[in-house]
């Protein structure tokens, strides 16, 4: 048994991979080993996995409906056996709302990452590789976006687009790509004059191909790290918009909106705002720990082991 494990490990760590798949898996395995060497990062990963599981199984895990409460008998009950995290002013079970709210948190986080990271990557690598006018124009646009405080800009967008969680996502995505563009550009500038990029140029590759196939892969790991570390901020911005009433609209169980509605009772019924606050805290922490671990595992500068 352990001999089999040992031989599989040797196969993965081999200096002489015999196939494309083995080379790729070996590389992933080395990164995984570096990642798991950092205990806190594993904790972060477990938190994020737990979030995904909770979101997927919300229907099973939540004992009550997240939107329909028992106004007559269950208003503002303290945490107890029947309602683990208590109930809110409309008699809704807070635990169930948090469980369903995890879906909205994931929704926001994933959509923002899918929209913002590719925009930033594209703008940054194109600006860095092309240089000259293209670079100047793209980076000035980036600077303009960076010059506004993120939340204020997001507020302006939501105000223009109308409140709602989809618009909140779009607003956050629009405000969070500029730092990614900066990172991707800086990374591109360090590699664009390297001999290995020159060598591809001398193969007759088009600029488009060089950026897409040779420069982007080098920027992706620093971008993944940055995006993961930004997740906490994105969750908080989404919560902030929700709190201001510009994000998720009632009765959606979005965590930020829940805090906002619990604010009125914060002194007497602390759990109404405290429970979603705790959830945001834990998930943000999870993303930060994961990001730190990814930095150790994916850092391009330690790519040569």
């Amino acid at each position: 048994m352990s001999a089999a494990v040992q031989s599989r490990r040797d196969w993965l760590l081999s200096d002489r991979p015999a196939s494309r798949a083995q080379a790729r898996l070996g590389r992933a395995y080395v990164a995984w080993r570096r990642f798991t060497a950092n205990r806190l990062a594993v904790v972060g990963l477990l938190i994020i996995l737990a979030l995904v599981v909770v979101a997927a199984l919300a229907d099973v895990l939540a004992p009550y409906s997240p939107t329909i409460g028992d106004l007559k008998n269950a208003r503002l009950l303290a945490p107890g056996a029947a309602h683990w995290f208590g109930t809110d002013d409309l008699g809704r079970d807070i635990y169930s709302r948090i469980v369903y709210g995890s879906r909205w948190t994931l929704y926001v986080v994933i959509l923002v990452a899918i929209i913002a990271a590719p925009i930033g990557l594209l703008v940054g690598t194109v600006a860095g590789y092309a240089g000259g006018w293209t670079d100047a124009i793209l980076m000035r646009v980036t600077d303009i976006f960076l010059a506004f405080p993120k939340l204020v800009l997001a507020l302006a967008f939501v105000a223009a687009l109308g409140p709602g969680i989809e618009n909140a996502v779009i607003a956050i995505a629009i405000t969070s790509w500029p730092p990614y563009a900066r990172i991707a550009r800086a990374e591109t500038l360090t590699v664009r004059n390297s001999d290995y990029i020159k060598a591809v140029q001398l193969m007759g590759a088009s600029p488009f191909r060089i950026v897409l196939r040779h420069i982007m892969p080098l920027c992706i790991s620093s971008l993944i790290i940055r995006v993961t570390l930004d997740m906490a901020g994105i969750i908080l911005t989404a919560a902030g918009l929700g709190f201001l009433g510009l994000g998720a609209q009632p009765p959606l169980p979005e965590w930020g909106a829940m805090i906002a509605s619990g604010r009125r009772f914060i002194l007497d019924q602390w759990w109404v705002a405290g429970a979603p606050g705790g959830a945001i805290l834990i998930v943000s922490l999870g993303f930060n720990l994961l990001g730190d671990g990814l930095r150790d595992a994916l850092d391009p500068r330690s790519g040569d082991q």
Binding site: P17, R20, A23, S194, D195, Y196, K198, A199, V200, H214, P217, L218, P300, G303, D304
Partner: peptide, 10 residues
């Protein structure tokens, strides 16, 4: 410096 650090020989 002349070989891409993230690519196999292949």
């Amino acid at each position: 410096g002349s070989l891409h650090p993230r690519q196999t020989v292949d």
